[in-house]
């Protein structure tokens, strides 16, 4: 790695990094508590920096070589794995500790601007974790099925089929919770 190349690499990374950091921060804020999010953000960025060459084979910027959009799905995928790692090691430290930690620090995640949408939260919780994640990637990260495929490491075709099903399932759940109006908090016993 000669100095000219590494300087060039640095510059290319610096060009995309702010957009990536911002996006990954949001990605993590949606999925974990703030302190874990901080740690995982660092890990993610480190991995991105180390493996930068793998995602951006040297391409001149004119050909979109350094477009943040092209990097984002890949970066989300990295963040997803780092988050899974962080959560795994936390689980290893002791499930009880993890639970206390979570109870002690109730989601500092900023509540939605218009007030919480309990029905939606309940409906998302009722979905399979994979389905809910697909929907989040679609609505929150605003990814296309092809980009979701990169994040999850599946084929674009599979992503688009699963996304379609996930939407159907969410609508179904929303209908169910809508029918069970007046029933709050507990998701248990809400089955018809």
């Amino acid at each position: 790695m000669d100095s000219v190349n590494s300087e060039d690499r640095r510059q290319r990374f610096e060009a995309v990094a702010p957009a990536v950091i911002d996006a990954v921060r949001r990605f993590l804020a949606r999925r974990t508590d703030p302190s874990t999010a901080d740690d995982v953000l660092q890990d993610t960025l480190l991995v991105c920096w180390r493996r930068f060459d793998e995602i951006l084979p040297v391409r001149p910027p004119s050909q979109g070589g350094t477009a943040p959009d092209a990097v984002l799905p890949w970066a989300y995928g990295v963040a997803r794995n780092c988050l899974a790692n962080a959560e795994r090691s936390r689980r290893r430290q002791g499930r009880l500790l993890a639970r206390v930690w979570r109870l002690d620090r109730p989601a500092e995640v900023v509540p939605a601007p218009d007030g919480p949408d309990d029905e939606l939260t309940a409906a998302l919780d009722a979905l399979r974790a994979e389905d809910a994640e697909l929907l989040r990637l679609w609505a929150w990260e605003e990814l296309s099925p092809a980009e979701i495929a990169v994040v999850l490491g599946i084929s674009p075709n599979a992503a688009s089929i699963r996304l379609h099903r996930a939407k159907q399932n969410l609508r179904e759940e929303l209908r169910k919770t809508g029918d069970a109006a007046g029933h709050e908090e507990s998701t248990e016993g809400s089955r018809p």
Binding site: R25, R26, F27, A29, R30, A107, V109, V110, P111, A112, P113, D114, P116, D117, L120, T121, L135, R136, W138, A139, W140, K167, L170, R171
Partner: peptide, 13 residues
């Protein structure tokens, strides 16, 4: 559906 999900985005602000 997407709009409703977006309104619930915890990272919105």
């Amino acid at each position: 559906l997407r709009a409703r999900l977006r309104r619930a985005d915890p990272a919105a602000d």
